[in-house]
Amino acid sequence: MTLTATPPQQAPPTQRRPIGSSQTSVERFRKTITYVLLIAGTAVFVIPFLWMVTTSLKTSQEVLAYPPKVLPATPRFDNYPAAWTSLPFTTFLINSIIITGLSVIGNLVSCVLPAYAFARLRARSRGALFALMVATMAIPAEVTLVPTFIMFSKLNLVNTYWPLFLPAWFGYAFFIFLLRQFFLTIPQELTDAASIDGAGHLRTLWSIFLPMSKPAIAAVAIFSFVGNWNNFLTPLIYLRTQNNFTLALGLSLFKGQYETQYNQMMAVGIISLLPILIVFFLAQRTFVEGVRLSGLGGR
């Protein structure tokens, strides 16, 4: 992933003192404390994941052993296929991929276009509409949940994928805002040059704005992917028959049916996290940049 904006790598210079001055031992002490605290923090953040992995490899007896065992006597890798086949998880996985894929594409298309409009095209009501859009970010999802459900149920679309991905094709204020902030940094001269060459707005957007906004677009794609993949509430409300379930819904179903099978639960949990982990490690910088973009937009 290439980034045009500088990633937050360099820290501001702390006060340098000449080597050998009386302050160096104080400095060294401070450095040590810093690392000790950071490593302690790392342990707190990482151990739950390690616990998840070791639990997934234990036998059912070891999971409930008292006092608990840190490591299984022998790792039980067959927990994974056993858990995966106890419910139709392959079907759930395919459903998750379809719904998430359609939502990510929808988010990208339906957010890039309005972002371009808000960044570059002038119209009398642009300011008012933009303010309205920013205001909608404060609407809690709960308020729209019930009327939206009624609408989809009147359209007989409950227990289909439509309610899960269709809203993604109609813009999402936060993503539009993020993209628009990025588009504003693209010099006007470039657009002018393109329009002199006779390029329409779609051409300008496609051949100038999109290539120059890769970090922001990647951030939107990734946020959308993670959000939809992890989404639990709307599948829970709309999906009724098991064959339509997503991974998140399947996991909660598993939890309901095999209350104490923590080893198998952790196994399917880990599998369900793999796509996100892969995307995260491949596009980590984009993630960080996206969070920075959104955070500093609030300043």
């Binding site: 957010c111 309005p114 095209l121 119209a123 094709w169 109609f170 813009g171 204020a173 707005h201």
Partner: peptide, 15 residues
């Protein structure tokens, strides 16, 4: 302005 409303229409409809 027409282009603006066209490009913004996904969000306007979504709203």
């Amino acid at each position: 302005a027409r282009a603006f409303y066209g490009f913004a229409s996904p969000w306007i409809l979504g709203f």
